[in-house]
Every structure is written in structure tokens, then in C-alpha cells.
Design a protein around this nucleic acid. Structure first.
Length: 563
RNA sequence: UGGGGCGUCGACUAAUCGGUCAAGUCACCGGUCUUUGGAACCGGCGAUCCAGGUUCGAGUCCUGGCGCCCCAGCCA
């Protein structure tokens, strides 16, 4: 039974969906079945999220199925740690493969049988050339390859050799099994590509059952076919592999033939996306690990405070096409802000504390105030904050010599302490070195809650915490990991992408947060009013550590307000 | 200089398969409002790689250029 009727197909949102609609209308397939095929050799990053979500949204929109398949054909690079991490990230994103979790290694026996079949058909042969020789024999863009001396080895001999390869009679690299296609093909992938190589390596799922492993090209299309995949979506660099993908399917005369369609991978400004580079950042300790909040990995973004919803929104907004482009990281940041603005509860925290004493406020007294948790969503409720004689305010919110348009505190100026009261600065206390260490102010008792009792205009509103009730917390201010938009390109010839690392990508400060924040679970996402969105760290759950997801938009300082 | 792709505002994506103001989002720039210099709201900026051709009409079709990306792993 077709699961998708051609009468109520969705309106295509990009060229891949257009192709799928055509296929369905033409009757080439009568359902949609897609897959995400990661190799478990690293963590998923935002670029994978794009690929995952393209597949996932297609499956949903067409009433089709989505498989997760680990492409585990190279045992020396793969690790079960990655298998776990990838599934964790996928679940976090909200994609569901139901009971269809597969491994290419599950198909090793079938793949091997197919290899023998191709040998018997005279379409594959065992080659004794070394890796270097194969490379040299292959020719280059301008010269056709030379046939391997083993190209016309008799079928029986090939079969015997292949079986002995499998049996472990030969050392690594002694032979390969190659497809017999065309050594002069302009597409290099068709110049008798290797199908199997000998690797006496332990496979994390197969153990030592195998010492020959299939190459990607010999495994991928057939795995898709076995699973009934209709549309095999991948990135542009596999475009050249499509003829080979189809060649194997045809040569094996498989009845179910998936269609491969390629799209452009995601590049993001101010970050790197290659697994190799990300691995290097982790292994050389430039970051804290795969889940360092500065990493573009899903684990990193999660720890940073990004929501799955914001990743979805981002991926939807960037679209799907074939031009390779670089998306401005500002778009990603916009996506989190947009979501967090809607859902994040508001609290107050001071990250660079300056003491403020309300001289006409009785010592030892606390004025309790119920402050809204979300000013635009009353249903979020309130939390209680205590106004006391001694408070912490943000150092940046005071200037001894204010300039034009300065709305914050300065000697003689009156400002509002958000949900607290109105205070006027009477006196500035400095230490021997001349640094401001304390502000002495008076409050208007009529202004409790921050109201203006007589309607007088108070332009500035400051966030604050009670010195008596606030709790100390470590606050990690993250910035972009790299200081250049295209960090993959070294600043100068012979340099490394590491030279583009931003030395100020992490600043750790000790601040104070309002007491209600101490009760929130690790992983909680909040807004520190006027500062930004923060997420309680999950790695250091034993103490109060807050990671800055993204600062609030700040049009004022951007317009040169700070100078 | 082989093969495979791709060229639309600063960035990303659209444009009913040739049809008339080239649209939207981000960024940027103004303004209104505001107990977050946030949010919201209003307005502005700004693009069809180039040259020919076909056509009443071209981002879309044709020809020729130019530019960018990918491919010479027993990685995926």
C-alpha cells in the first residue's frame, strides 16, 4: 500500500522535495523513505543538523520513514563512544528513527556475497598492486589510467584469492578487490575503484570476524537498497560518486534502486566544521572537549544553552540548495534569541559587581518584592526578590563622568533598580588607587517596586541583586572561538587555522545571582536581565556555573554608545 | 589544460517552468514605544557574474566568456 497518495502531496519547499514529488507522481516510488548515515568517528555538529533535519522534515512532510544507519565500514576510526553521542544528539534534536537503527556492518555478510557475485560476473577482480602503485596506475586528470596487471585474472583465481583475503591469509595491503569499470573514465571514481581492503583491525561491533572491510562506495548504495531507502540525500562532494553508486546497484541487478540527490553542506562564519579540525581542537586541548560550549557540535551548542527548537528554526531558515555558501553565524544567534526571548524565565545577576549602599535604608531590613518571571507572559508567575540596604550593581552601569545620552548611574543621577526602587547617587567612594569601590545612594521609599511615584521620568533601569541574599556564582562569558569569518583559511601562508583562534573566546568571572537561580537544575536556560541568555552548566553540576549562550542584542553600544 | 557542480541585495533563500513592482529572513540604518539601551511595532538601505542573441517580454531560453567549489585515500 502506498503510504503517500499523489493526490495530497505537500507543496515542495526546495529542489529536493520537488524531485521527490516528481518521483511520486511518476510512480517511480510509492512512498518516501530516507536515512541519516553518520560514520561514528566524531560528534555531530550543526552541519549534520542541517542534513538530519532535511531528511527528517521530508520524512514527516511526505508521511515517510526515517532510518538511522551508522556507516561503520572503517574500524580504525570508529568508536562506540561516538555511536552513543550521536544517538543522544539525535534524540535531543527530536528526530525519531523508531526501531530502525541500523549499521552498515550488519550487512557485511550480504555485501561479501555480492562481492563474490560480481567476481563471478567478471565485474570485479583481486588486485595485487600496492596503495602507491594503484595511485600511480590510476593516472590523473589529463592522462588515463593503466590497467592493473591483474585486471584479467581468471574468475576462479579471483574467487580463490578473495576467499583467502577474507580468511586472513594475507597481510594488510597485500590485495584489494576492485570493480572492473573503466581505467580511462574521466570520472576518477570509475577507474576500477577498490571495493574491499584488507585491515586486520578490531571492529567495535563485528569484533575480529572480519579482516576485509568494504569501502564506502561498495557499501552505501547497497545498504540504502537493503533498507528500502527511496531517496539517498547527501552532500555535494558525493556528486561524482553517483555514477558509481548506480553502477553497483545495476551490476548487482538489485530490484530496489534508491535515488541519490546532493545538496550543499552548511558552512558557518567564525567557526570550522570539518571533523578533522574539530577533532584536533579537542585532542590538542584548545577546547574543553567535544561539548565545549564554543564548539559547533550539537553537544557544545546544547551545553551552551541552545534549544532544539532554535536549531530547527535555523535550519529551516537557511534553506536547501546546491550553491556552497557560508551562513552568517548571526543567523544562528538570532534563532536562539528568538526562541529564548519567548520562553526563558527572567532573573537578575551581576557579573562585575560594584557595591551600592542605600544610606537611608534601614540596616537589617528586607523589602520583599514579587517580580514577574516573564514580563510579557504573566502566566510564568513571579519570584520573590529582596531589597536591602547593600546591593550589587553592574560596574558598567556607573560612570563618574557621564557622556551625552548616558542613561545609567552617575553622581547626582537618579535611576531605577528594576522591580526595586528609584535611587539617586550621592557619593562615590574610592580606594587609595582611585578605583571606585562603593556608591552611596538614597532611595525614594515611595518608589518601591520601581514605580515612579509622581510620574517623573527615570530613563535608566539597572539590574541588581541584594548583597545580603545573593549567591556567588561562576559565570562563563563565551565568545566566538575564532576571530575571523573564515577561520579554515590560515592568516598567512604556511600557517594553521589555529592561528585564527580567538584568545578571548572565554572569560570566567565571579558574580552574584539572585537566590532563585540557585534552585534551578543544571541545563536550565534563563535570561539574566539586560545581559543575555545563560544556561546552567551540566558538567559542573555540583556548583553554580552559568554559561552565556548569547548576549542580548545591544543596539546602543553597537552604535558607539559606549564611547 | 579531464570530469562533475554552482553564480540573484553585505549574508542566506524565493520568483506561479518566458509574463510585467525581483519577494522574504538575517545583518545594517532610522523612528515609535518601553520598569531590560531587550522585545514589539513602523520605515529605510540594497541584487539577477559579463557580452551577445532569440522574444512583444529574459533572473529564467541559446551562444561565448569570466569566476568559484569538488574529484587523482586501500577515508566517509
Amino acid at each position: 500500500m502506498p503510504s503517500t497518495r499523489t493526490t495530497d502531496l505537500p507543496e515542495p519547499t526546495h529542489f529536493i522535495e520537488e524531485a521527490i514529488v516528481e518521483d511520486l507522481r511518476a510512480g517511480r516510488y510509492d512512498e518516501v523513505h530516507v536515512r541519516f548515515p553518520p560514520e561514528p568517528n566524531g560528534y555531530l555538529h550543526i552541519g549534520h543538523a542541517k542534513a538530519i533535519l532535511i531528511n527528517w522534515s521530508i520524512a514527516r512532510r511526505f508521511g515517510g520513514k526515517f532510518n538511522l544507519r551508522f556507516d561503520d565500514t572503517d574500524p580504525v576510526k570508529e568508536d562506540p563512544e561516538y555511536v552513543e553521542a550521536i544517538q543522544r544528539d539525535l534524540r535531543w534534536l527530536g528526530v525519531d528513527w523508531e526501531d530502525r537503527l541500523y549499521y552498515a556492518s550488519d550487512y557485511f555478510e550480504q555485501l561479501y556475497a555480492w562481492a563474490e557475485q560480481l567476481v563471478r560476473k567478471g565485474k570485479a577482480y583481486v588486485c595485487s598492486l600496492s596503495a602507491e602503485q594503484v595511485s600511480a596506475w590510476r593516472g590523473d586528470f589529463h592522462t588515463p589510467g593503466r590497467p592493473s596487471p591483474d585486471r584479467d585474472r581468471p574468475v576462479e583465481e579471483n574467487l580463490d584469492l578473495l576467499r583467502r583475503m577474507r580468511a586472513g591469509e594475507f597481510p594488510d595491503g597485500a590485495y584489494t578487490l576492485r570493480a572492473k569499470i573503466d581505467m580511462a573514465a574521466p570520472n576518477m571514481n570509475l577507474r576500477d575503484p577498490p571495493m574491499y581492503r584488507i585491515k586486520h583491525a578490531h571492529h567495535f561491533r563485528q569484533g575480529d570476524a572480519w579482516c576485509i572491510y568494504p569501502m564506502y562506495d561498495f557499501a552505501h548504495g547497497q545498504s540504502d537498497s537493503i533498507e528500502g531507502i527511496t531517496h539517498s540525500l547527501c552532500t555535494l562532494e558525493f556528486e561524482d560518486h553517483r555514477p558509481l553508486y548506480e553502477w553497483f546497484l545495476d551490476a548487482l541487478e538489485l530490484e530496489h534502486k534508491p535515488r541519490q540527490i546532493e545538496f550543499a553542506r552548511l558552512n558557518l562564519s567564525y567557526t570550522v566544521m570539518s571533523k578533522r579540525k574539530l577533532l584536533q581542537l579537542v585532542e590538542e586541548g584548545h577546547v574543553d572537549g567535544w561539548d565545549d560550549p564554543r564548539m559547533p557540535t550539537l553537544a557544545g551548542l546544547r551545553r551552551r544553552g541552545y534549544t532544539p527548537e532554535s536549531i530547527h528554526a535555523f535550519c529551516e531558515r537557511i534553506g536547501v540548495a546546491k550553491r556552497n555558501t557560508t551562513i552568517d553565524v548571526a543567523l544562528l544567534e538570532h534563532a536562539v534569541r528568538e526562541h529564548l526571548n519567548e520562553v526563558a524565565p527572567r532573573y537578575m545577576a551581576v557579573i562585575r559587581p560594584l557595591k551600592l549602599v542605600i544610606t537611608n535604608f534601614p540596616e537589617g531590613r528586607t523589602e520583599w518584592i514579587d517580580a514577574p518571571i516573564h514580563p510579557e507572559d504573566p502566566s510564568a508567575g513571579t519570584r520573590r526578590i529582596g531589597l536591602t540596604r547593600e546591593l550589587w550593581i553592574e560596574r558598567d552601569d556607573f560612570r563618574e563622568v557621564p557622556f551625552r545620552k548616558w542613561r545609567r548611574l552617575a553622581p547626582g543621577r537618579e535611576v531605577r533598580l528594576r522591580y526595586g526602587c528609584l535611587v539617586t547617587c550621592d557619593e562615590v567612594v574610592k580606594d587609595e588607587s582611585g578605583e571606585v569601590v562603593e556608591l552611596r545612594c538614597t532611595w525614594d521609599p515611595e518608589s518601591k517596586g520601581g514605580r515612579s511615584p509622581d510620574g517623573r521620568k527615570v530613563k535608566g533601569t539597572l539590574h541588581w541583586v541584594s548583597a545580603e541574599h545573593a549567591v556567588p556564582a561562576e559565570i562563563r562569558l563565551y565568545d566566538r572561538l575564532f576571530r575571523t569569518p573564515d577561520p579554515a583559511t590560515p592568516p598567512e601562508e604556511g600557517g594553521s587555522f589555529l592561528d585564527n583562534l580567538n584568545p578571548d573566546s572565554l572569560e570566567v568571572v565571579e558574580g552574584y545571582v539572585e537566590p532563585a537561580l540557585a534552585a534551578l537544575e543544571p541545563g536550565s536556560r534563563v535570561q539574566f536581565e539586560r545581559l543575555g541568555y545563560f544556561c546552567r552548566d551540566t558538567r559542573h553540576a555540583d556548583r553554580l556555573v552559568w554559561n552565556r549562550t548569547v548576549p542580548l542584542r545591544d543596539t546602543w553600544s553597537r552604535r558607539g554608545g559606549g564611547s
